[in-house]
Structure formats: C-alpha cells, structure tokens
Design a protein around this nucleic acid. Sequence first.
RNA 1: GGGUUCGUAGCUCAGCUGGGAUGAGCGUUCGCUUGACGUGCGAGAGGUCGUGGGUUCGAGCCCCGCCGGACCCACCA
Length: 888
Amino acid sequence: MKELDKKYDPSLMEDRIYEKWMKMGYFHADEKSLKKAFSISMPPPNVTGQLHMGHALDNTLQDTLCRYKRMKGYEVLWQPGTDHAAIATEVKVINKLKSEGKDKNELGREGFLKEAWAWKEEYESRIINQMHKLGVSADWDRLRFTMDEGCSAAVEKVFIDLYNKGLIYKGNRIINWCPVCKTSISDAEVEHEDQASFFWHIKYPVAGEEGRALEVATTRPETMFGDTAVAVNPEDDRYKDLIGKTVILPLLNKEIPIVGDEHADMEFGTGCVKITPAHDPNDFEVGKRHGLEEICILHDDATIDLPGTKYDGLDRYECRKLVVKDLEEGGYLVKTVPHTHSVDTHDRCHTTVEPMIKPQWFVKMDVHAEHCRHALASGELKFVPENYSKTYMNWVDNIKDWCISRQLWWGHRIPAWYCDSCGKVHVGHAAPESCECGCTSFTQDPDTLDTWFSSALWPFSTLGWPEETETLKKFYPNDVLVTGYDIIFFWVIRMVFSGYEQTGKSPFDTVLIHGLVRDALGRKMSKSLGNGIDPLAVIEQYGADALRAALLTGNAPGNDMRFTDDKVINARNFANKIWNATRFIMMNVESAGEDVRKLFSSGYGKVPEEIRLEKEDRWILCLLNDLVDNVTRNMDTFELGVALDNVMSFLWNELCDWYIEMIKARLKSDDRDTKAAALWTLNTVLVNGLKLLHPFMPFITEEIYVNLTDEESIMISSYPEYTESWNFRDDAAQVEGLKEAVRAIRSIRSEKNVPPSKKVSVYVVSTDEKVRNSFEAASAVFASLTQASEVLVQQDKTGIDPNAVNVVTSNAAIYIPLSELVDMGEELARLKKEEKRLEGELARSRGMLSNEKFISKAPAAKIEEEKAKLATYEEMMRKVREQISALS
RNA sequence: GGGUUCGUAGCUCAGCUGGGAUGAGCGUUCGCUUGACGUGCGAGAGGUCGUGGGUUCGAGCCCCGCCGGACCCACCA
C-alpha cells in the first residue's frame, strides 16, 4: 500500500494513467478470444474539427458501457475511427489554400488531394489526442478512416453491387445546388431559414385576349426567364376557359402555354402559378406531367445564364432587382407585398441553395426502406429510449431517393467510366478493355460520393468486410450504437439498410440515443453564438472524471441536458470526497499492521473466518450488495445516469457520512477483533464501490485502487456480482432504526440549540427485547453520533425526568432530559404537530385498508405492507399521545 | 399541414411495469476548527406534480380535451 497525496489533483494523474493503460494494451480487442463479444463502433468524428461537448457526451456514454462490459468479462471491441467529412473538409482546405494565396483549380485534382490528406493527418491526430484526455478506451490499434484502403474498397464494392441490382441509377433530376460549394447536396443537408422578403405580383398578358392577363405571385422574380407555362387549377371557374391558350412572358415577350394542374391551389394567392421546371421541384413535376420544356437560366455560381440579354452574367440577386425594376417600368408589376418565407440553405455554408436540374447519381429507397421497417418490426433493432423508433419510422415512411453524387474532389470517386466516343456508362473497379462501340478510351466520372455513403458501411467496413475476417465474425453485428437523435436520419437509417443489404443483418442490436448538450441557459452550443464550452478546458480545470460524471448525472436517455459549472464542481467535490475517505482508510490500515491487511484479498461475497462482523458491518455490506444489484440492472438497461447516482449516493451518504462515522470509535479501540472487522469491511466496501464507479470515473478509481490494493489495474478487475450471502436484512433494518433515532436526536438538539459540546443523557425505551438489544449493542456508536454522555436502554420510563424531551421513532421512544432548556408550551406544540402528522398517516393507511375494493383487488404483498405501516404508526401515535397527556 | 416531446421545490432536472413526493444537485436559513475531507459535517425551510375531465381500489405516471413551451419533417407558387 502506498500513500495518496494530501490533495486530490486530477491533472497530476490522468495523463500518466492513460499512458499506462495504453502501454498495457487494455483497450485492445482480441478477435480470437473465447470470451463473449461486446462491440461498439464509434461514430467517427470529422477530421475538420475538435472535440466538443457533444463528442464528450457521446464518448463518455460509450466508454462507460465498454469499461463496464470489460469488467463483466466480455471481450470488448470499441472500434474507433474518423470521417473524411467531404464537403466540410473540402471547404476548409479551400479556405486554407486561399489564405496561402493558392487556388484549388490551379493545384488540380491531385495537388488538391495531397493538401487534403495533409489536413486530415493533422486534424485526425488532434482529435484523437483530445479523446485520450477524456479517457476513451477504444482499441486505437484498429483506428480506421472512412477513406482508407479498406473502407474505400467496401464503398466501391457496394456501389457496384447496388448498381448491378438496379438500386443505383443516374438521372437528370432536380437537386439542391449550392452555388458557393458548387456541388449538389442531399435533401438532408438542406436547412430552412425564415427570411423577410417580398411577394411580387406580376401580370402575364393572355395572348390574343386584349386586356386579359393572369396575375402570378413569386418570391423569386428572376426565375421567370425559366418559365415555360402558367398553371391554373382545372376546377377553377375563373380561369378554366383559358387552359390551352397562351400568355406572353413579359420582358422576353415569349408565348408560353396555360396548363391545368392540381398543383395550382385555388385558395392560395391569385390561383395562378408560374411554372419554372428547371428551378423548382414542384414545377419540375408539373413540367413532367405536361411535357414542358426545362430551361436552365443559372450558371453553377448562381449568375444568370441568358446569353444575348442584358441580364446575362448578373448575380441572381442583382438580376432580381433589375427584373423588378423592368417589370415595374413595363407596367407588369401589380404590387409588392412584404412576405416572410423559409429559404433553403446549405447546412455547411448557409448559402441559399438553388434547385437545379443536373445529371446525378441516386440510390433507390423503396427496397431499402423495407429493410428499415423489417429491422424494427422483427425486433432486430431496438431504440433506447423506445420512443425514438417513432422518429425513425417517420423518416423511413417519408424517405425519397438519395442523391449521392457530389461535385467535390475530397471523397470516394464514383467508379463509373464513360466511353469517350459513344458515352456509354461502365460501372466497375476500372475502365473496361473496350466499349461495345469498339472504343478503348474512357473517362472516369469526376464526381465523388456523399460522405454518408461510406459512413453507412462503417459498422462492417471497419471490421474487414467484404472479407470474412475473424474480427467480423467475432464482433459483427455490433451490440450498441450510441448517437444523438439529430443524426438518426443521416446515419442510423443508412447504416441499417446498408447492413441488411450487404450482410443480411441489422448492423447493431440497440441504438442508445442521447440528446444535445446545451449551455446553462438551455441554448444550443454554436460557433455563431460563441456559447460553446470546450471540454478540454473543463478537463484541465476539474479533471476528466468530473466532466464525465457531470455529463451523466441527472440525465435520462434521449433528453437534452444543460451543462453547468455546478454539475462539474459537484462531481469534482465527490471525487475529492472519495479521495479523502481513502486517505482515512489507508491511515488506519497502516497503523493496524500487516496481519489485518493480509485478510483483505478476499473476493466479493465472502467473509474471512478470522473476521467477526458487527451489525453496522453487515448493514453496509447489505447496502453494497443491493447497490451491486441496482447498478447492474441500470447499466444493463442503459440508465447510466441513474446507475451513477446510485453509486455516488452510496459512497458519499452511506459509506462516508454514516459508516465511517459509526466505526471511528472501533478503529481507535484496542480490541483487535472489532478493529479488524471494521477495517476489513471498510476496505471491502471501498474497493467494490470503486469498481462500480470505475466505468464512470476511470482515472480516480484507478489511482486509488492500485494504491489501495497493490494490484495492477482496476480496469481488468472483475465486477462485483450480487450474492444472497450478503443479504443481512435483519441487521440492516436494525441499523436503519438506529439511524432514524440518531437523526431524531440531532434534530431535537439542533432545534433546541444544544451545542455539540453539551453532552446529555439519552434514554431509549422499547418493550421489544430485540430492539433493546440492538440499541444496547450500539450504545457507544450511538453516543458518539449524538454527542450523548450516556445511552440508557430500558423497557419502560422508570427514572426518566417526566419533563424530558421525547421523540418517537418507528421502533422506540427516545427521551432526552433537557428540562432546563425546554419550554413546556413549545414542547407540547411540537408534540401536537407530530400527532397531527401521524393522524394524517393513520387516516391514509386506514382509509386504504378499510376500502373493500382495495382489499379485494390490490396485490397481497401491497396489503401486507400497508398493514405493517399501520401497526407502526399506531404504536407511534400511542407513545406520542401518552407524552402529550403527561405534559398537559 | 404531419409527427415528436416537455410542463414536478427559487433554478436545473430525476421519478423504474400506476401503489405513500422521506427525490438529486445548486441556491437558501440555522448551527459546527468532530484529529479523511470547509472541495467538509449536522439540522431545517421550500412542491394543490400546467389545467379540466375520464379509466382505476389507487394517477406525477394510462386515455381525452385545453393552456403554455421546444423540436423534427413537409409546404409556403
């Protein structure tokens, strides 16, 4: 046994401990192990950023589960890795190049990718170091990256496979285009932002009908150059005679047809809709139904593409101003109405996206959606908390084909090759020898795949798939996936259908959902608000253990949480408490000598023959045993916050506040047996308490454990198992009675302002011999906990000052002769108050028991419980009334 | 428009399959140099569980309505 520093200072130990764990290889998972497997794939953080509170929470949850399972005897694989984060990284690298005066296009594809890889190396190692600080026990030997060789091979195989099955197709479709990033983005990457703007009402004159015009309203007047029709509802009496005729498109003086289409809502606006198939998803559909021309009027950077006009080359918003001005001058503008509407923006750069028609690659979703439904219906996939399966199904039921091509360089290049002469597409690992047309020259598709295409394969691509590796066999499917609810659509759904499609299985059994970490005011942490809290700063100040505990306490699965300093400070104070309790124990063990200490190695659930336990020893062992049961149950149902609360309150409130105080006298005594039993119990309870705490607070528990036990590490120690042999119910109940009495006396002393220095006699009266015996046995403890000069246990009130203060507990009556301090009127009032409280309890209890329906319908155990309570309260009432009549 | 979720102590939140709100932390009041710890110890005050119904022997928990907040999706020509 070594000594602990006088002061608890996490910064002095955490790095050292982590290095030791790494060196010992405790995080490594052995695919050849015969132990039962437990596996989690870490949601790969982007190589763009740094650890934020969301990561800290996500990884703390995973780490806690993994450490628990390891101690429980599982072979645990926590598979770590990072994500290439296509757009995010590409944008950051471009910006970095810009700041160095370089340009993406000048560098060329190869040169740019070199820069991007260098970026990746730097940021990957940075974020991994940050996870080390948090205590993440992932198997770093198996670190993967979404664009490494194996993952890339998996991506290519899946693409080719889906293409061959007809589940991937290429088509000209309307997609979301980001004019700044110059790439298509999926629906999921689009955010909606409310913006104040206008509704411009414009007249389109009907051709050949002098004086008649259709009035349309638009928020994007510049798109009128792409109009190829005006739609009215076919049921609309106002306009249905015009269907089939044409209107003159102002400014361009072009005739376009009037079509009848359901899309036009008679109730909304004027009931007439301009149709711009190339720049609006709804209009695109209308265009398809009516065979309308699709005229693209925008360049990729959102400047106007209208050669031969004065509008050509203008920025979209410049053009808008000019169009409005020209319409007004031409007498076409009817009115301008202020209007707030939601604008689609790119979630990465917040640029307003433009719907554009582009040739893109899509994944068909119908078959895949079926996989997702099956996963839940079959029970092969479960959500914790369960209600998130509704969110999941809501997504599944509304899913649309997934646009997977991106006009980026940083990513997995699409394995499609176009014949240079006939243009035919060939999908495969490499270009074919020759095309059917005889041509032997091909060009690869320049596009890359959506980041989530590779993330979707993460649970198996990281384990060696498509090879049937030992690792894959041992650890796939994963047991748990831990992630936030905001990512169910992006990631969870795509992993699920990919898992079924490629491996025939759900990629994981349980999805543990957590919420967002918000700031103290409940706001989302964001760069723009500048309200983010840096986990590393918190670790530096309070330690990783405190941060982890703060993230887990008082938080139920799936719920958002507020992060406040209070929580971290409380967690740090707890750590300090445990630290000092350990120092106290060590100090006493040291002085007790080697012959006591050698008894300490016994396993859980056994008491060495030489040890003679006393009541309070059995009480705390019984509580510990219940704790093991509770914590295990809560860990297994993913109630980590509850489990941690249980451990903390046991160690702090029961072990430190009660047990240690109870045995202080025994530790000072010369009786070798009683001292040995107390020390043995202390050590046993602390060591096992630390084990229960370790998954949550790994560093301090390791430091204490190795110093206390001289063993190698708590990480590889075995988890306590609940045992019947430590169910000392009877002793536990007696000590609880004792505690109740102590609290009652302290309460009286405090109420009467009796200073601790004043020692008074305490009489305990009970007619129950067993109760008397237990108080008798504990009289020394009892006296020290209540600052009593003596404790007299007796069966009646003989010799007690009739004016003594009296409190009634559930198994005894306590008398404290304090007559000189007591105002009899006050005392009577206090007793009356107690009488009233008991009356309430009795009424409740009797009411229940006299209710015939309760007696006939409630479970028998519940009835018995209530009867016992009633008996206790009746007895208490009897004593209180006796005292009242004695005083009156 | 579709869906989800919340409303419990001054604040932030727990409350397990319905069985006494002896719930936690912080804050607050009073007291304590108790030799492990003031990052501590002891004792208090503080709640008609948003609201109105219903089901039940019994509702913070289940069902319906309402009020008030949050979020997601779709739409907004």
